[in-house]
């Protein structure tokens, strides 16, 4: 390498594996043009916890909506235009002074994408499922 040559960031093994699979699938014409960029943009800017916040805020000010939300979560959430993958069968629970709900997937990382977006790192952490299923009051 020349003295004045730039030093590009090293490509990690996992990045090389992603690039390999992407290249092979692209050669087989399985990657629609713009698909990766579009789906990434949607999850970065349109689908996220701001959607769930709208649902909760509506329930705060509209008792009839709150009742529908707790009784038929999927339909009530769809009223605000939210739905899609991982949101097909939604159940809504409510915290009270006596009951605190913690949602955890102990087998993978199931998460309600339409209202909360893609799961954050702590939810996907292998430490989350083990502790919360056994000791939800102390874990985390």
């Amino acid at each position: 390498m020349s003295a004045e040559g730039h030093h590009p960031a090293p490509v990690s093994p996992v990045e090389q594996r992603v690039a390999a699979l992407e290249a092979l699938l692209t050669e087989r014409r399985l990657v629609p043009e713009g698909f990766i960029e579009e789906i990434t943009r949607r999850y970065e800017s349109e689908i996220g916890p701001m959607n769930g916040a709208k649902v909760v805020a509506r329930a705060w000010v509209d008792p009839e909506y709150r009742r529908r939300l707790l009784a038929h979560g999927t339909a009530a959430i769809a009223e605000l235009g939210f739905g899609g993958p991982e949101g097909e069968h939604m159940v809504v629970v409510e915290n009270t002074p006596a009951i605190h709900n913690v949602i955890v997937c102990t087998l993978c990382s199931c998460y309600p994408w339409p209202v909360l977006g893609l799961p954050p790192a702590w939810y996907k952490d292998p430490r989350t499922g083990p502790g919360w299923s056994a000791s939800p009051n102390v874990a985390g």
């Binding site: 992603v18 992407e22 999850y43 970065e44 430490r127 989350t128 083990p130």
Partner: peptide, 26 residues
């Protein structure tokens, strides 16, 4: 047991690096 505490960062990006988004799409 023995996994330790779960960390939390409130200002986390959806994808930390571009390859994560590509892997998800693939």
């Amino acid at each position: 047991q023995g996994f330790g505490a779960v960390g939390h960062s409130p200002a986390e990006p959806v994808f930390h690096q571009r390859w994560e988004a590509v892997a998800r799409a693939l």
